[in-house]
Design a protein around this nucleic acid. Structure first.
Lengths: 207, 207
DNA sequence: GTTCGATTTAAACGAACGTATGAATGAAGT
DNA sequence: ACTTCATTCATACGTTCGTTTAAATCGAAC
């Protein structure tokens, strides 16, 4: 086992705490304590608490958008017009994959993503997701070809619906009794694909 | 116009700021300043900042669950087994109605609800939504009768999907350019009903 | 006009916050 | 052995936080 890198431990601790208590609700002292590091370590390695959040966010988002992009490339290599089902699977799947591991970290990642997408403050939104925007645009045009009857606005609404379902997913587990059966980890993923595919293929809303 | 009640102005200001900046991100000083009240007014009228949040939350959630309950009563008066479409409309509709007015307050309410449902901290969860739980349970059994092929767990997942779509809805408007057309306020509602009805009526996921 | 309860006010409290600083530490290069 | 450089450390600074207190204000009841 490699000696635990302080920088990485700070990222881990911050990811944990930001997801659980939010950005404002997490103190630099709590982060450094959980990471067994000195209080000044955040300033030294990241410059500020806000820049640490940006680094955490990038680390969580990047593999998701990478998998989304790779999945779309794979689909487009087979046919120029993939089915809605395939597009939903390739777009929503990676979010669930990232939220799965360990069932503990999954719910935390889910909460973190929801906090990121739901917070309009500058600090939370400062991670500059240009890659993420590009991936979303590519899916937008692929969905447009797969659903030609849908108005751009309604399509856009539906894609946001995908994000909503994926982000909330297990984020509110704390609302109810701790789940009768500790459901197999990929079940939520499959339920979501069913749910979202049906939703995406619905006929356009009549005006 | 009635003289502006201090207590009400505090609720209004707090609702505004909690939605925009979150609970931890909002200071009592910011609330009282926006409400043109004294700093100690929060302590006097509500006891603490946390109890003010509980009051704000109750004021936002109560009319929604009331409308949900009334809508279900109305459906059940006509037939013991309402259709999925009707159930979705009666369950999700009131959320959008509450998030509509003025397009400004709508997005704020949406954000506030998302923050409430996504925050596991005790302060945010302390509003004791027993009425809200009752309404959800009644819809759960109604949906169970309307979708007898669905396992309880998957049904439960789908109902959470409704909440997700409704809560996120306009909450992330700040992500993209300020909407090409200032879409008519009930359009999101109708798109959501289409989206969610199709999603709810999807056949069960095969095991 | 005085009393009284409810409300508002200014001021202060200690605690916790993010950040900055300069000295210790320790391994690597010479 | 000595220098170098990156990292860690203890400590302190100034701000802002939620809450509390006691005095001031005010309309209504008597």
């Amino acid at each position: 086992m490699a000696p635990p890198d302080t920088r990485t431990q700070l990222l881990d601790a911050a990811e944990h705490l930001f997801a659980e208590r939010g950005f404002k609700g997490t103190s630099v002292r709590a982060i450094t304590e959980l990471a067994h590091a000195n209080l000044a370590a955040v300033g030294y390695h990241f410059g500020s608490k806000a820049e640490l959040l940006a680094a955490v966010t990038r680390r969580v988002i990047e593999p998701i958008t990478a998998a989304q992009t790779a999945g779309l490339d794979r689909l487009l290599a087979q046919t120029p017009d993939p089915s809605v089902t395939d597009l939903v699977e390739a777009f929503a799947g990676p979010m669930f994959d990232q939220m799965r591991a360990g069932d503990e970290r999954g719910a935390r990642t889910s909460r973190l993503i929801m906090r990121i997408f739901g917070d309009p403050s500058d600090e939370v939104r400062a991670w500059t997701g240009s890659v993420e925007a590009t991936a979303r645009d590519r899916y937008l045009s692929a969905f447009t070809r797969a659903l030609p009857d849908l108005s751009p606005d309604e399509l856009h609404f539906r894609i946001r619906g995908i994000l909503a379902v994926a982000a909330v997913d297990r984020a509110d587990l704390h609302n109810q009794p701790p789940a009768a059966t500790p459901l197999p980890s990929d079940q939520a993923r499959r339920w979501a694909i069913t749910f979202l595919t049906a939703a995406m293929t619905a006929p356009p809303t009549k005006p």
